[in-house]
Design a protein around this nucleic acid. Sequence first.
DNA 1: GTCTATAAACGGATAGAC
DNA 2: GTCTATCCGTTTATAGAC
Lengths: 204, 204
Amino acid sequence: MTIADTAKSKATQEGQTRNEEIFQTAAELMVQRGYAGTSMGDLAKAVGMTKAGLYHHISSKQDMLLQILLHAMEELESTVIEPAKRIADPEERLREMIRLHVRGLFDHGLETALLFPERRHLEPAQQQVVGQRIQSYRGLIRETLRELADEGKLQDLDINITSSHILQTIAGIARWYRKDAGVTEAQLVEQTVNFNLFAILKVS
Amino acid sequence: MTIADTAKSKATQEGQTRNEEIFQTAAELMVQRGYAGTSMGDLAKAVGMTKAGLYHHISSKQDMLLQILLHAMEELESTVIEPAKRIADPEERLREMIRLHVRGLFDHGLETALLFPERRHLEPAQQQVVGQRIQSYRGLIRETLRELADEGKLQDLDINITSSHILQTIAGIARWYRKDAGVTEAQLVEQTVNFNLFAILKVS
DNA sequence: GTCTATAAACGGATAGAC
DNA sequence: GTCTATCCGTTTATAGAC
């Protein structure tokens, strides 16, 4: 680990390929400034190269967004959806989905939060590909709420609107959370789980 | 009311000055596409003028954003904050704040939802002006939660994080709500109030 | 108050040297 | 794999006629 590495690892991580560094830095910039508000010049400066240098690693800005969103979706599927599907009890499944999703935001640079606001910048066909996989996640949430309703555990809430509210409290974290404020990651995970479960579950 | 007016009034309203029409249309475009994703050419086309014509009414794109956010803030203060401050009971005050804020989103073209994601595109000094007024709104929410805690009515929740979650469920509506989906405005107002109050209030 | 025309800067992307 | 140089469309903004 050289001194240059040490300095750089504030923003990124060790053991990353240049490619991974570019995509991760791009995701972080886009979380802060949005896709349209992040220029290739900004990104080049952030990773310490020129714009032209970037294009050895990517084919276009839009394709880079697609790759980031597909990667985010894979991460969501492997670290949230698949583990959740193995949980039979709907209350416990919902709790784990929220916990794992928020935990994943912090562990992977908030990139899954880009799925919702930045999808619109893809071509329609690409939007559909990403959109369908997001719908499958929303479907799992809705199905879980439906099961809770069947068990008489769901508050008097519309399942569609409620699934949007849950996702907003999670993705919204990327918009207001900054490392400096006096809130720890663990606290935010716990509070987001509790807020949503308090909202959803009937007290018996 | 001419036929041309009839056609135009789908997007805007009657009895508006050209100035109001421009600012309101800009706000609507920015809700859909973001500030950086909305060009002055897009706006010109939407209001039926040329780009140059627009600059008779505004001084710059960034200043237009500032005016929109200040207007949104005034609207929030007059239609949500002031009425809420006249309500003594904290539970009823919180319920009304959420109800009035969501109702206002629909009544005024979702523009107050721009306050949170688009503030970053202002100059730092302008950000601070808008930011302080937003903080005053957040302060009222926090104070209300504090009063609920004092009455023993607040769930075991962090007041800072919870105020962010409340605001995200409200502002987030602008990101996913589209008129065509099978959800009415009244339903969304009611569901958003209930979701948040279910989350926050202890059951006695 | 709105237009045509245009300046000036920026942004995405490529060519070709090293 | 990265650079310098450059192309070219887009964007913000202005000048000046009507």
